[in-house]
Design a protein around this nucleic acid. Structure first.
Lengths: 163, 163
DNA sequence: CGGGACGGCCGAATAAAATTCGGCGATAGC
DNA sequence: GCTATCGCCGAATTTTATTCGGCCGTCCCG
């Protein structure tokens, strides 16, 4: 995990489909080396996969929201089960399991506020294990990794303790 | 935007680097047609790009958090400015501009809780335009599009009004 | 009904890219 | 200072993307 690996990572986050030759030239190594480095990043689990980014608005899902859910009983099983079931819904973009008053935060994209209302009231608020459901509308959502610079956060050995 | 396009989209969200031949065969069209369809999806802005997914834990950033920020004055300029400056930080994975008590929700990944504390106290809480900063630890974050099924939410013309 | 034009799909030909692999050079350990 | 190891390189090979001319179905208009 040296500077070259980080540069490869940064570039692949921004454009996961640039040719290996371009990538190699950009970071200053031979194409075969770039290929080997990229493969190693994948095998080490640093790169988890490559994905197309989709514009929800272009798909007619122009309303986004964050739905906070409080779950009871607050058991691991209940929370993980809800997390997975929410993640399976086609409306869902992401699920956060969080500390604090709420247990889950679900990021959704839907066609309209009316759809959002029905989704929340008919499919979430009814569930008995959801003791509280709160909806926040998302005006804007930006993901830096897909647009500009990436992670220069100091890298450390994950096993190191930080107190 | 027919069933074939949706299938292409779904598959490219899951694996943005499968070969065009694989993709074509999977959806039942000729490679040249698959290429043309994919290109069209890009030109129409449905596909915004291709990106490598990165495991933050493998990079030594095993602590994730959501930081709620209340901004004053609550002007468009102030909020957009903060949104962009937060998005530029290397710790940031995503920024939500939201309704409700808070104006911004910033998703970050950092090496440790100590790092998180310093980040919040030294670099956010000090800013005078941030009248309230609250930190929530993220235990788990899953993005369905990168793992299982995608968007079967009914597609509609974005210009349609929904009352 | 009968052209005729348009759009989209196909498949072969071409161009470009990924991938493999043998050898070389630097580095570290002894 | 010798040797083993690792990673890099570049040419050869394989695979892939990309182009493009022709074909077919559909729709429009006569």
């Amino acid at each position: 995990m040296d500077a070259v690996d980080r540069e490869i990572l940064r570039r692949l986050q921004r454009d996961g489909r640039q040719t290996n030759r371009e990538l190699a030239q950009a970071v200053g190594i031979a194409p075969s080396t770039a290929l080997e480095r990229t493969r190693a990043l994948r095998e080490r689990g640093v790169i988890t996969g490559f994905h197309a980014g989709v514009d929800m608005t272009a798909l007619g899902r122009s309303v986004q929201a964050l739905i906070s859910i409080r779950i009871r009983p607050q058991s691991r099983e209940a929370i993980e089960s809800v997390r997975d079931s929410m993640a399976k819904l086609p409306e869902t973009l992401g699920v956060f399991v969080v500390t604090g008053n709420e247990d889950l935060l679900v990021h959704v994209a839907v066609p309209s506020t009316r759809y959002l209302r029905d989704f929340v009231l008919d499919r979430l608020a009814r569930r008995k294990e959801f003791v509280d459901v709160r909806t926040t509308v998302v005006f804007d959502y930006v993901q830096p990794a897909e647009q500009s610079e990436l992670s220069d956060v100091v890298e450390r050995d994950p096993r190191t303790s930080y107190g």
